[in-house]
Simulated assay, not measured.
Amino acid sequence: MQGDDLPKFVENPQNFVDLNTLGAEEIAGDYLEWSWSAATALNGAHIGVPTDVGGMAVAYRTDLFEAAGLPTDSTSVSALWPTWDDFIKVGEAYVAQTGKKFVDNSSQSIFFQAVNQVEAKYYSPDGDLIYDSNPEIKAAFDLALKADASGISARLAGWSDGWNTGMGKGDFAVMAAPSWMLGSIRSNAPDTSGLWGVAEIPEKAGNWGGSYLAIPAGAKNPQAAWEYIKEMQSPESQLEHFVTSGALPTTPGVYADPALLEYRDPFFPDAPIGQIYTASVEAMSPFFIGPESGPIGTEFINAVVAVEGGSLSADEAWQKALDNIKLAIGE
C-alpha cells in the first residue's frame, strides 16, 4: 500500500488482519515511530509494516554543472542552496551562464518537495482539513510559482515523454530525487551513468513516499504471510534492500551502519546517498496524512502544471486549486 493511500485503508481495519494478533507489537520499536503509527487504526488494530520511506534530495548532472562553472561534489553543491530562495538564485545563474533550463519542473521538484517539509500539511494534527488556511501550504505553492516565473524551469511534467527523455539529453540539470527516484534516473537515462550527483534538499529535511505491506482479512495463511513480512522487512533485510535496490529503510537502527553510510552507487559515484537520505528523514517533522491527502496534493500540482503550460495565470492558480479540491473531495 502506498503511504498516501494508507489512511483510506486504516479507516477500514476490518479488511485486514490485525498484525498485533501475530506479534507486531514485539517489533514495533524497530521502525520509525511516525511511520509505524500511521498504520494503526482508531480501534488499535495495526494493519501494515512500513517497507521504505522517501527521504528527499536533489539529483544533478555533474557534467552540466562543470560546464556552467558550478562545483560538482555533493558537499559543495549542497552548500549552494541552504534555502529554496538560494536554489532559485543558483538556477537563475545557471540559466544566465548556459542559456539552458535548470530544473525539470516547478510542480514536483519544488512544490511537492517543499510541501513535504512542513510542520503540518493538509490536515491538522487532530485530523481537521487545513489545506486552504495553512500558511505553509500557500508558501510552498507560491514558491513553485516564483520558481516558474524566474525562468529556471524546463516545464517538463514528471513522467511525461519529454521528462523521460530530457534526463538523458540534458534538457535540465537538476530534479527532485526522493530515494526511490534514483531508479527512474537509471532506467530513463542509462547512458548518463557516472554523470549524476546527489545533494541535500534545500532546508535539508523531508519525506516523499513510502509503502506498507498488509495481510488481507481473507488470507488463507496469515501466519505464513506474517513470517514473510517479519523476515523480509527486518532491519537487516531492509539494509540489504537499500544496498541492492535503493529502498530507504524505515528501521532507524541501521542508519548508523557503515554499509549504509559508506554506500556508493556507481551511477551516482561520488554521492554519499545513505548519509543524505537518512539525514533528511531523521530531521523531518512528521505530519498527519489524512484520507484525502492524495487528491488534495494532486490538485495543487495540477494548478502549478497549468501555470507552467500557460492555461492558467499565476494569479488565478491558488483559487483554482482550492475550487478543484472542493470538487475532488466533495466538500
Score class of each variant (00 low, 15 high):
K121H: 15
L42P: 15
D142Q: 09
I301K: 10
K204I: 08
G194S: 09
N164K: 15
W226P: 00
S74Y: 01
S184Y: 15
L143M: 02
P249M: 00
N302G: 06
V174G: 08
V77H: 02
D52W: 01
L70D: 00
F242W: 07
P235L: 09
F268S: 01
A154C: 05
W34Q: 14
Q14A: 13
P295D: 03
A177W: 01
S187V: 11
G206M: 04
A225E: 07
A199H: 00
D142S: 07
G194I: 01
W159R: 15
G168H: 03
D73I: 07
W36F: 07
L22W: 00
S35K: 15
S74G: 00
L261F: 02
E299Y: 15
V305P: 05
D265Y: 06
E11G: 10
G218Y: 04
P295S: 05
T21R: 12
P7H: 05
I276S: 03
S179N: 10
S193L: 14
M175H: 14
G23Q: 08
N207S: 13
P266Q: 12
V115P: 05
D315S: 10
E25T: 14
S106A: 14
G48D: 02
N12V: 13
G54P: 08
D148F: 00
E92Q: 12
V49L: 04
Q319R: 13
P235M: 07
G209Q: 11
F9E: 14
L312R: 08
M181F: 12
Q223S: 10
G310T: 09
L80K: 01
L260N: 02
S107C: 10
G206P: 05
A149W: 07
I289Y: 06
V58E: 03
K8E: 14
D63T: 09
V198E: 08
A303V: 04
V243R: 12
A176F: 00
A68T: 07
G197L: 05
R61D: 09
E240Y: 08
I301C: 08
V118F: 05
S193M: 15
L156K: 09
E66C: 07
A114D: 04
I27S: 03
L213S: 11
E282G: 15
E299F: 14
A96C: 00
F288R: 12
Q14M: 10
L143W: 05
V243W: 01
Q117C: 02
N116T: 12
V77P: 07
D142W: 02
I185M: 09
Q2V: 14
D86V: 02
Q319W: 06
E11P: 11
K220H: 13
A283D: 08
E26A: 14
S78N: 06
Q2E: 15
V198L: 02
D270T: 10
S187R: 13
S285A: 11
A224D: 08
L260H: 00
N164E: 15
